[in-house]
């Protein structure tokens, strides 16, 4: 029984981390086709905003949402002044966002110093047999699931979601029907940034906030979203599920090194067999 619980916990946490680091990219790259190399730094900004706001005396749970809001606004500004001019120019986007990523790392280092900042979330722990499980890690899993459901509901059941999906499929037609596509692009990019910021904030009590932290996550985020294929949400869920199970189980049974290696190995095989990603052959869905 303990074993089942501990496996469920490892898989759940691993899945949650994959979801958190890749959901924002699923919107920005999966839907908008913007290769955002500064995605890891958006995560880092979320973590920094969270630690700063918490240090200013705000409750941790509220600071999560303020951090998301702040990164969302930052994302909209970035879209307005930079990304806007680069739609469809993949190589240029790549360079521009890489530059942005360097700029953000340098900027944050200059302002806050190179050391990492931490924010305490001491919720205590629950005991399962011989194992103590950090309650906060369970909160992380809950956040990941809530974020997933929220995003799905937004895309699937709201008028805004419908307009966004329509605009991404055919911007010219959307514009002809009276949609302000420029605004839709800005809002979508902002939404992707906001959920990335939220993810960074939620991860901050576990991993801290440090200028170079983006690079720890960016690779995994891209692997997940590329494996996902053209249906960003469904694909990200399945890819995170697959890699989460592998990483959770293998890292627990053997070691973190083997866990990471197995994930990368499976990713290579998967993309060889399904070059268009897991959802490559699906016709419908989001």
């Amino acid at each position: 029984m303990d074993d089942v619980a501990i496996y469920a916990y490892q898989i759940g946490l691993s899945f949650a981390i994959f979801i958190l680091i890749s959901l924002g990219l699923a919107v920005i790259f999966g839907m908008m086709r913007v290769i955002n190399l500064a995605q890891g730094e958006f995560l880092m900004l979320g973590a920094y905003f969270c630690t700063l706001i918490t240090k200013a005396g705000v409750d941790l749970w509220i600071s999560f949402f303020l951090a998301a809001l702040a990164v969302g606004v930052f994302g909209m500004i970035v879209e307005r002044v930079m990304i806007r001019y680069l739609y469809g120019r993949i190589l240029d986007t790549l360079l521009a966002t890489w530059g942005l990523s360097l700029f953000l790392v340098g900027g944050v280092t200059t302002i806050f110093g190179p050391q990492s900042e931490s924010v305490a979330a001491t919720l205590g722990q629950v005991t399962v047999g011989a194992f103590g499980i950090s309650l906060y890690n369970l909160v992380v899993i809950a956040f990941a699931l809530a974020l997933l459901l929220g995003t799905y509901a937004l895309w699937r059941y709201t008028r805004f979601g419908l307009v966004v999906r329509g605009t991404m499929q055919n911007p010219a037609m959307a514009a002809a029907l009276g949609v302000n596509t420029g605004l839709v692009y800005t809002l979508t990019f902002g939404f992707g940034s906001a959920i990335t910021g939220l993810a960074g904030a939620v991860l901050a009590p576990i991993v801290g906030a440090a200028p170079p932290m983006g690079v720890f996550f960016i690779g995994k985020a891209f692997i997940t979203v590329i494996s996902a294929g053209h249906l960003p949400l469904l694909g990200t869920i399945s890819a995170s599920g697959l890699y989460g199970v592998i990483d959770g189980v293998v890292a627990y049974i053997s070691s973190s090194v083997i866990g990471e290696m197995t994930v990368l190995f499976v990713a290579i095989i998967l993309l060889r067999l399904l070059p268009l990603g897991i959802t490559g052959r699906m016709r419908r869905g989001i």
Binding site: Y9, Q10, A130, F131, N137, Y252, S256, V257
Partner: peptide, 22 residues
């Protein structure tokens, strides 16, 4: 003895193994 690549931030699997080994 366990090794970790320099970019590992999730130590939950190792911590569970440590708890099992006591």
């Amino acid at each position: 003895v366990e090794f970790f690549p320099l970019d590992v931030t999730n130590f939950a699997p190792a911590i569970s193994r440590i708890q099992a080994a006591k």
